[in-house]
Design a protein around this nucleic acid. Structure first.
Lengths: 149, 149
DNA sequence: CGCAAATGCATGTTGTAACATATAAAGTTC
DNA sequence: GAACTTTATATGTTACAACATGCATTTGCG
């Protein structure tokens, strides 16, 4: 459906429309993702952290700051997110030996298993853009990169 | 900057990257908008409501449900948003005469003046996509519409 | 070394999104 | 017109984002 109909609003110009369109589309996609994640008891930022931890597991533990850098939302409150994951037994946390300000965060076996069970999320995520052809996906990436410079 | 560098992550495929790219770009743009709005003491949904109220002013007052339909975020808690705007004297609110369940919401003079003073927000909003050509803006709109069907 | 600045993380506070539920009025059915 | 359903809005609760601040540790520099 076209955005004009969906929002029943008017736009100043195509540029304005594109901005709102971006916001609106993102909200819809985020909502779809969230519904999936909720089934597994995770929020989007929590899932994000687990995936980063798994991704960098071979390179050793990750500090809070390291995780923060890799979050979509840089203002993310990683300390408290890790708290939650720790409470659920999905990550481990200890003091770094050489820099005692840092915490070494690591995904647990339980966390890894959860991610494995969440394969459906990844599959679903890839279908969210199924209406686009491969070329269109590339074009979208190009345009989004360009927006941010 | 390309999204790979920004997030320092890896993506399963271009489709996955596009999804994250969309989320990430939206966050950046939202943040820019928010900073602007904050100068005027409004949040994005509050601003949104005021603009809708102004836009439909010639067609009479708006109900809460009418406003809800026109919000980006349909789950928006319009009742409480209107409360806030009412407290600030930016909108008026009275009971609808023919249907006493409904509330007639109306933007006040003060609200209209605030919007006028916020022209810079609109100008700025249009520059957020300034890196894109007109054709690219149209292409972006097309792709986003297509994502949502 | 001794001290100021920077860094890494934690925590307190405020506002708001998300969700469920409540309340009241209007519409529908018989 | 009584009973039920639907609609319009309000409110209660929980979790989390945003922002500021605090505290401990490390770093840099005279």
């Amino acid at each position: 459906m076209k955005i004009e109909d969906e929002l029943k609003g008017r736009f100043r110009n195509e540029r304005h429309k594109a901005l709102i369109n971006l916001f609106f589309t993102e909200k819809q996609l985020t909502y779809s993702m969230m519904q999936l994640l909720k089934k597994h008891g995770l929020t989007e930022p929590q899932y994000n952290i687990l995936r980063v931890l798994r991704g960098f597991r071979s390179q050793g533990t990750s500090s809070i700051g390291f995780l923060k850098e890799r979050m979509l939302d840089r203002s993310s409150d990683v300390s408290r997110l890790v708290d939650k994951l720790y409470d659920k037994g999905l990550v481990d946390r200890k003091e770094n030996e050489t820099d005692r300000r840092q915490k070494d965060v690591e995904i647990t076996e339980k966390g890894l298993q959860l991610l494995t069970n969440m394969d459906d999320c990844e599959l679903k995520a890839d279908t969210l853009l199924q209406n686009l052809s491969d070329d269109e996906v590339n074009e979208l990436n190009r345009l989004l990169d360009k927006i941010r410079n």
